[in-house]
Design a binder for these strands. Sequence first.
DNA 1: TATTAATATTAATTAATAGTAATATGATAT
DNA 2: ATATCATATTACTATTAATTAATATTAATA
Lengths: 113, 113
Amino acid sequence: MIYMTKTTVTKAAIQKVSMKKMGEHCERVSELLKSLSHPQRLMILGHLTQGPKTVSELQELCSISQSQLSQYLNRMRLEKLVNRTRQGKYQVYSIENQELVQLIAAIQKIFCC
Amino acid sequence: MIYMTKTTVTKAAIQKVSMKKMGEHCERVSELLKSLSHPQRLMILGHLTQGPKTVSELQELCSISQSQLSQYLNRMRLEKLVNRTRQGKYQVYSIENQELVQLIAAIQKIFCC
DNA sequence: TATTAATATTAATTAATAGTAATATGATAT
DNA sequence: ATATCATATTACTATTAATTAATATTAATA
């Protein structure tokens, strides 16, 4: 803002530090957020924070078409948001990324109360 | 997952509740996240959490073209993420939405340490 | 080994977003 | 009243994302 008092100067100093870090990270973070910025992908990840799920379990939970689900999962796998292991004829997806788990927990806390 | 033990059954019950709420909100939340899923918009909002800013201040802080900045701000204003008040020849933008402030704080905490 | 269930891939269409440049508006100062 | 600064709007192009349908793959089973 335009008018600066002593307190805002102090605040500005604090802010500068945290926003510098923000600047460093916002490319990567915004990339990650892009994956969460879709209702069904957010839903998928939400369910995965509760534990590993097979594709067909997710399909039931999220009521989403097989093709789309597979495409979303593949996308998020390439982005390292989820990982996949085969278990017989099932593919089991889970969340590996701890930051992501924290983020989704924070989102639930803020928006789902 | 496929194999259910007593503990996972209990977990599933807990999870069902929070995921139900997630389901209710994920449309709205993902919509909001869409605005954050862009490096410069994230940056803009980050700066605005530190206090109100004029357009030209944001322009300096985010090194972004006037036109694009104005377009982003307008978009986020329509989405009620920021609000605008005129102060003489300046337009001052700020964050009204408390959820958004919390979310950005959480993001900083998780990703910018 | 042929069939089926589970999942992945491809292709094609449509919709949304990003980015840029040019022009317009609105307030202030001359 | 006009020139200038701050901001907004419009129009356009390029890029990316979402959606759907059809087909392919892989593992299990009859």
